[in-house]
Design a protein around this nucleic acid. Structure first.
Length: 1038
RNA sequence: GGGCGAUUAGCUCAGUCGGUUAGAGCGCUUCUCUGAUAAGGAAGAGGUCCCUGGUUCGAGUCCAGGAUCGCCCA
């Protein structure tokens, strides 16, 4: 039978992106993802929820970050034996989609949209949402994110919308869905309210007028006196026309103070700043005593009665500060959130004299039709003319502007639908307690604080492209309201079967009022998109209408993962809906991802031009490189400083190192025609060591992935691969070129196991290695995750000590400027006890690595250096506490040689502190070597290595022979020979070099695979220089 | 303005329960090893562990205040 190579040859210069494409092709052919799911059918479920992105823009690097973390843990759990459903999802609704379409259509306002037609507009939105779907799918596959995109849920589907309606109806039935007023930021030019996200886009520093206005009291009594004037501060003079009340802090101290003959009321803390040093303090009292004081409003367009009983009186508010102003806050119910809440609290009516276009209405007489901001100067002039203005300044602050058109936003009270989440705040907090957050501080930090300050969820949006609010209202009596809970219910009530539940179709559906029989029409609002995505645990399955059991078996999720900014977004909407409906958290573990910054620490953004597109990285380094960077460069929640260079570093540091080890294995396995199944792993001592290290690694990786810590797990793999490459293979090379089956079995076992450990992290490279070295399954991703095996802790420890001794020996060589190639007679190792035992056990390894003929052990280092004795603070600190300085002094005065001798014999050492004797044992003291002058010695802790430097003729010749071998190897390589090629070797040149080669001829021919060696090549061949002598080398393939 | 987090070598990051001499990689300089390696090894240069104060026998680590950066909210 013809011999054949057991393994496919490996390119030592891999092109990872190309290789990954080939692996992808294999996955497709073998249907590996589906197969991995099929094999776990019926297994215990481990549930992952996909937070849906919107596909109306190109996916960026931050999406890749999220998607690879969404991939690594499900892959791990699948390999661990769980059934991990990975249903994809797409978020389809919302203002961002509408805005993108508006831009495309070149329209800017709601009027434009209605002119264009809601049906057509929403159709454009529907198309726009999936505009980049192909691009998303392509990237998702390319980065190895295994998620089911064919069966992805889409929030625009009628089934999805129906499940959302079901949830709203449940909330309605619990009495938690209600209509109220809300103060929203809106752009008067665009005629639209803005989401908080949009508001955040538009903060600009502006200079606004800052006015101090006199509000004379009316019929004042104690603690005030007739004629006292309230001093009120505002930066929005235009809202003064609808002043409804003045707010003070009940606990803050206020004063009556006289200035220029007038008595003002201001907060004590602000008196001097506002009234100046000359103001005369007349009286002090708490803010609460001012409650109910009546005053003359700054303008008379709207009378007190318009606001109700408490109009134009002093009220108590919890939002008043003594930071700026006067401590008395002008309150205009319609134009501020605090104002609005206060109004609700005191039963004041909302009066809003501003039209949707930002101009005053006819109630404001001469100002009707004027833009409110433009009216500021005239209003201030008016106040001044009537003696009501104390002072005018300029106030510079950040104020939100419309991010689209730059118009300053106004705050404006509008009717709006709410979910009464604040009534279940305690349940939200309790649900949050049950969640494992990564990082942990989110629970009681950012997210916990957010929940503690929970306010009712403002659910409705006066927009077009979204899940319609399923609330119908009676034309005859607005108090008759009904929330529809399913498409069926709507069909039964109205007789209309809706195919598309979106606007405008749903708006046309009417039915008879249960209470009075009049016509019920839907309210115009759609709902917040966050409610859509928060409903995904059941809505993705169309539960409870279909698949209800499946939903219940897959709720809650064990794992979700999104960026940190989702605390206010998806993390919250999921939790809120789940708590409202099921009184529990919908997820058990959350991994929060940080932001991606550029190499300079600047936020990446398209506008700055510093964004790195994912494809740039994928095409240059490949997906595994990008994944590896995200997993191992740092803990993901801390954010990333992203650059191509950093990723390249990871490639060289880890991927190439692993690849080279793999390539080395295949090269020599094929050269030696090694039997795949031959040999036994972990028999020789070095083999047992690397296998033990492998098991240690498997433990850490398993624990890390189980605990959502990919960083520690990944770094552990890298450390192991380094041990394999730079120690195991390095020390075992001879066995590999001699074809030792045990060595091959051991290395193969390590590499195959690494491929399995690595599979969740770098699914491409892992599969490539597995496929070639094992291939027992169609893919590594169908394997079971490695179980940690038994370890030899003693051997691991001993090897660490031996490697330390090697490090010391190499350092000593470096100091002496003696090449490792030059053999030395002897290394003197100073070590005792377990350390000596460790080095003795691994003496061969140490000896070979240091290239010395023998190791000699000495226990006392007296001949090589002095000992130093130091206290072990860690052990002694708790025992001696405040006496530690004395202990340290006592230890310092001990005779080190005496201590060393005592400890060798395991006798205690006595010290005296404050007249009391104490025994110190080995654990209490640290012995360190201190080198003496003139010795070539390297020390570390209590052991050291010294080298015998003297060379005799024999050693010298052997060194030269090694130099000759080295030169021949270089010539072999230059001649382009394969590692297994036999050669005819001809040497010539310097007599001493040739003599050295002759003296070690068997060694030279053995090392260089020479079948013949001649010494007559004086004139021929490539010249090489060894220690100033010329060597001529002729290498011919034999 | 409030909340949360971060700040350690030129760069990217570790640093365990508080333990006295703070580490790694990259980059730089000088050596060196190599019948896989673009790799590896040794030495060197490089540190106000953001600052100030406190707790402690002992603080990069714990506490308080501040600075800077980032995120979220207002």
């Amino acid at each position: 039978m013809a011999e054949r190579s057991p393994y496919r040859a490996v390119d030592p210069r891999p092109d990872f992106p190309r290789l990954e494409d080939a692996v992808l092709q294999r996955w497709r052919e073998r249907d590996v993802f589906r197969e991995s799911l099929r094999r776990r059918e019926g297994a215990p479920a481990w549930v992952f929820y996909e937070g849906p992105p919107t596909a109306n823009g190109l996916p960026g690097t931050h999406h890749v970050l999220a998607r690879v973390f969404k991939d690594v843990f499900p892959r791990y759990r699948t390999m661990r034996g769980y059934s991990v459903e990975r249903k994809g999802g797409w978020d389809c609704h919302g203002l961002p989609v509408e805005i993108a379409v508006e831009e495309k259509l070149g329209i800017k306002s709601k009027e434009d949209i209605e002119r264009y037609g809601i049906a057509e507009f929403n159709q454009r939105c529907r198309e726009s949402v999936f505009e980049y779907l192909e691009e998303w799918n392509r990237l998702t596959e390319r980065i190895g994110f295994w998620v089911d995109l064919d069966d992805a849920y889409r929030t625009l589907d009628a089934t999805y919308v129906e499940s959302v309606w079901w949830a709203l109806r449940e909330i309605w039935d619990r009495g938690l869905l209600y209509e109220g007023h809300k103060v929203v930021p809106y752009c008067p030019r665009c005629g639209t309210a803005l989401s908080s996200h949009e508001v955040a886009l538009g903060y600009r520093d502006v200079a606004d007028p800052s006015v101090y206005v006199r509000f004379p009291t009316v019929d004042a009594d104690a603690p005030l006196e007739p004629g006292d004037v309230l001093l009120v501060w505002t930066t929005t003079p235009w809202t003064l026309v609808s002043n409804a009340a003045v707010a003070v802090d009940p606990d803050l101290i206020y004063v009556r103070a006289r200035r220029d003959g007038e008595v003002y009321v201001v907060a004590e803390a602000l008196m001097e700043r506002v009234l100046g040093e000359d103001a005369e303090l007349l009286d002090r009292f708490a803010g609460r005593e001012l409650e109910g004081v009546r005053y003359e409003p700054p303008f008379f367009f709207l009378g007190a009665a318009e606001y109700g009983e408490r109009g134009h009186t002093v009220l108590l508010g919890d939002f008043v500060t003594a930071q700026d102003g006067t401590g008395l806050v002008h309150t205009a119910i319609a134009f501020g959130e605090d104002d609005f809440r206060l109004g609700e609290q005191y039963g004041l009516r909302v009066v809003n004299p501003v039209r949707p276009d930002g101009t005053y209405d006819e109630r404001i007489g001469p100002y009707a039709g004027t833009s409110v901001k433009d009216a500021d100067p005239d209003l201030i002039g008016d106040l001044r003319g009537r003696g009501r203005l104390l002072r005018e300044e300029v106030y510079e602050h950040a104020y939100p502007h419309c991010w689209r058109c730059g118009t300053p936003l106004l705050y404006y009270a509008k009717p709006s639908w709410y979910i009464a989440t604040s009534r279940v705040r305690d349940r939200l907090l309790a649900a949050n307690e049950a969640v494992d957050w990564h990082p942990e501080h989110i629970r009681h930090g950012r997210f916990g604080k957010w929940l503690e300050n929970n306010v009712d969820w403002a659910l409705s949006r006066e927009r077009y492209w979204g899940t319609p609010l399923p609330v119908w209202r009676c034309e005859a009596d607005p108090a008759h309201v009904h929330c529809v809970g399913s498409l069926d219910e709507l069909a039964q009530r109205s007789g209309t079967e809706l195919e598309d539940p979106h606007r405008p179709f749903v708006d046309e559906v009417t039915f008879a009022c249960d209470d009075c029989g009049a016509t019920m029409r839907r309210v115009p609002e759609v709902i917040d998109v966050w409610f859509d995505s928060g409903a995904m645990p059941f809505a993705q399955h169309h539960a409870p209408f279909e698949n209800d059991e499946h939903f219940r078996a897959h709720f809650p999720a064990q794992f979700i993962c999104e960026a940190l900014d989702q605390t206010r977004g998806w993390f919250y909407s999921l939790l809120a809906i789940s708590t409202l409906l099921f009184d529990r958290a919908p997820y058990e573990n959350v991994v929060c991802l940080g932001l991606i910054l550029d190499a300079e620490g600047q936020k990446m953004s398209k506008s700055k031009g510093n964004a790195v597109a994912p494809w740039e990285v994928l095409d240059r380094f490949g997906a595994d490189a990008l994944r590896w960077y995200f997993f191992t460069s740092k803990q993901p929640w801390d954010g990333y400083r992203f650059s191509l260079e950093t990723i390249g570093e990871g490639v060289r540091q880890f991927l190439l190192q692993l690849w080279n080890t793999y390539s080395f294995f295949v090269l020599y396995a094929n050269v030696n025609r090694v039997d795949r199944e031959g040999g036994q792993a972990g028999r020789a001592e070095l083999d047992r060591w690397i296998v033990s290290r492998l098991h240690a690694t498997a433990e850490v990786v398993d624990r890390g992935l189980a605990g959502y810590d990919a960083t520690t797990a990944g770094r552990e793999i890298a450390a192991f691969v380094d041990d394999v490459s730079n120690w195991y293979v390095r020390r075992s090379r001879r066995r590999f070129w001699d074809g030792d089956p045990d060595a091959f079995a051991t290395l193969r076992h390590c590499l195959v196991t690494v491929s399995q450990l690595l599979a969740p992290f770098c699914p491409f490279l892992a599969d490539e290695i597995y496929e070639n070295l094992d291939g027992g399954e169609p893919s590594v991703h169908l394997c079971h995750f490695p179980e940690p095996g038994s370890r030899d802790a003693q051997l691991e420890h001993d090897m660490a000590v031996a490697r330390e001794a090697v490090r010391l020996g190499l350092a000593a060589r470096g100091q002496a400027k003696l090449k490792v190639r030059q053999p030395l007679r002897e290394a003197v190792v100073v070590a005792a006890g377990p350390e000596r035992a460790a080095i003795e056990r691994l003496a061969e390894v140490v000896r070979e690595e240091l290239n010395v003929k023998s190791l000699r052990f000495v226990e006392a280092a007296d001949e090589l250096g002095r000992y130093e004795v130091k206290p072990n603070f860690r052990a002694l600190g708790p025992r001696f506490g405040k006496s530690m300085p004395q202990v340290a002094a006592a230890v310092a005065s001990l005779d080190p040689a005496h201590v060393a001798a005592a400890l060798r014999e395991e006798r205690p050492v006595g010290i005296t502190i404050d007249g009391r004797d104490h025994d110190l044992t080995g654990d209490d003291l640290q012995l360190a070597m201190k080198p003496l002058e003139g010795y070539q010695l390297e020390r570390e802790g209590s052991h050291a290595v010294a080298l015998e430097l003297a060379l005799d003729e024999e050693l010298r010749r052997e060194g030269l022979a090694r130099e000759v071998v080295h030169a021949v190897q270089a010539a072999r390589k230059a001649a382009g020979l394969a590692v297994e090629d036999r050669i005819s070797l001809t040497l010539g040149g310097d007599g001493e070099l040739l003599a050295a080669a002759r003296a070690h001829e068997a060694y030279v021919t053995g090392e260089t695979l020479a079948t013949s060696l001649r010494y007559d090549g004086a004139k021929a061949g490539e010249p090489a220089t060894i220690e100033g002598r010329e060597l001529r080398i002729t290498v011919e393939k034999a």
